[in-house]
Write a protein that binds this DNA or RNA. Sequence first.
DNA 1: TAGATTGTTAATCGATTAACAATC
DNA 2: TAGATTGTTAATCGATTAACAATC
Lengths: 214, 214
Amino acid sequence: MNKGDNVSIPTLERLPKYCTLLKLLKSKDVRYISSTKIAKYMQLKPIQVRKDISQTGIKGKPKIGYKVDILYNSLIKFLGWKRNHKAIIIGCGNIGMSLLKYKKFQDYNFEIIAGFENNNNIIGKVINDKDILDIDMLPDFLKGKKIEIGIIAVNESNAQCIADKLVKNGIKAIWNFAPVSLEIDPQIIIQQQDMTQCIAFLTKKIDNQKKCPS
Amino acid sequence: MNKGDNVSIPTLERLPKYCTLLKLLKSKDVRYISSTKIAKYMQLKPIQVRKDISQTGIKGKPKIGYKVDILYNSLIKFLGWKRNHKAIIIGCGNIGMSLLKYKKFQDYNFEIIAGFENNNNIIGKVINDKDILDIDMLPDFLKGKKIEIGIIAVNESNAQCIADKLVKNGIKAIWNFAPVSLEIDPQIIIQQQDMTQCIAFLTKKIDNQKKCPS
DNA sequence: TAGATTGTTAATCGATTAACAATC
DNA sequence: TAGATTGTTAATCGATTAACAATC
């Protein structure tokens, strides 16, 4: 096991934000950056930035800081973004469609290669160069294609059944937009995308502030 | 300050999931539920469920557990979902449009009442009964309307400027879909919606598993 | 050189988990 | 009643933060 393989989740979630900033700095021809400055940009503490970076095994230089291009490249590599990752979407309704259309995934070498549907009015469409296919073609489609990620954008009642189908056909990771907790082989990586969490955060925080205006 | 007002973020993010489950139980006429069973459904530990629930001030009964309808109602109330929360969207491209179309927000008493754009080809459209208006009309539109949440779905380079405009016009909370960290009055509640986090999680976990297949 | 910055080691903080008395 | 379950208090675990020697 490599050094950074058991990186903590909070750190893992901050790393892409450093990438975004470093990309910007690169475009402005900034050569070196210190944890102090990164922290200032991102409203974090310098020590946390250093801890995060050190978790990935990247080294800086006292007094100088980190070399922008090296740090950027190492982070991209660390996150696995040097390599292409392929995904398919199941469910091409409102959410599924917007993901199919989304162009920025390619910035992360993340590629949605097709959509799947059971609605005949939608099957056959081509969105952003990606075919929408009949869900029945899923098993055949996945054979030999090295697709690692299945994005579930169907409704709650169908999510579990789709998840089972994906796993059965060799999918390694699931990104689930349906608001249900999937029961699934723990070997499979699950990322739950829960709108309700976001709404809860917003509404609760607003209401707290109303009660105790400072 | 009420008891649950400083509820921890991890707990706050689990509460809506309990709501989802309780709603299902209610529809099946289940009257009582124990932390043990909730935990089983959601792949958590019973003690964590009890701790979460107790943070909201809701009480259960030894041996019996929690009354489903009371627990559900109390959680909804706690999260602020008894009251209507109004939002507007700035930027009606791919992401903004899909949020305008999304019907399930009403389940949480969360209401997007309009969209704003600067593109003349989009201004004037009506999506899901919601008008898309010229961004220049924003200040007038917000006057006296008690809109608390601004959803930013414009590109990176415009996000900060839109955020400033929203705050200037009395918005209390921002849900930011642009991949930049906004610099803003700390009084304002910010929820950062970061696709890159999700992608980082998926790609890194997949690559770790490749290296050490168990 | 002097001083800013890194990276290590230790301290603190907060969330999760455990233990168990109270109780329906 | 007996036993399952709650809720409290304490222990553990892990992430953040602090302190500081090493160093360019």
